[in-house]
Amino acid sequence: MTVSTMMIRLRTSQWWTRGVKTGGYVATVVAVAAVWALVTDAGWISDQTVPKLPDIVDAIGTLASAGEVWPNLASTLFRILLSFAIGVTVGIASGGALWRFPRAGGAIRPYLSAIYSVPLVVFYPIFLVVFGLNDWPVVVLTAVITTIPICLNTYLGLQSAPQVLINVGKSLERTSAQIFRQILLPAAWPAVLAGMRLSVVYGVAGVVSLEFVAAQTGVGNRIQYYYETFDVPSMYAFIILTLLLAGGCVGLVLAVEVLTMRGRR
């Protein structure tokens, strides 16, 4: 193998593309950090508004040793995962149900799409009233928020499964349940995954923002607390931690996507 052949093989291989992509993300983060350091060092923005990066890292350290970081992260993560799990199960189930009963599906679908336009957060106070000041309002509302994209996408994904695939199943004398499990669900899976990608973003945003308003624990609550006590570095510390948490959750869904879509792309 000559060097040039190797180069061509390398440049067109999957690993190269993956490497370049990851490199892009890393480069972006580095660039943002660099800009941040530049702006704060030059003193264009006061320290009180945007602290220097080392100050923030210090704050994270202090908070960690004070035992504040992990419990709050865990609290938020728990709410996110719980809401997401509910959202995925109810979403897929309801999406399947809508597809199974096309009359109901046809009637409900435009309203589902319309709910997208509605800021569901307006129901939060009502949930607070009904459930009280605990984890339930956050989880239930976020679960609703995450259910909708998944439900809609499952429904549309199932609908768009080519009829010919179903016919293949029928001609091989599979039962309805088998057809659903072995043919339809895999066919609709990419759409479901797309719904999950949307849902995880809404889910994280939902939990965190609701924590701002009336939660006792969690990163959103901490950000609010440190804002009100003017502890700016700690506030930023938790903001950064939240961003990392969000990234982790999105990464989780991406991992699911990579694992379940091997060979399809």
Binding site: A205, V208, S209, I223, I239, L243
Partner: peptide, 9 residues
């Protein structure tokens, strides 16, 4: 992907 609300404070 980030929860933009955290920028509000």
């Amino acid at each position: 992907g980030i929860p933009k609300i955290v920028l509000y404070p």
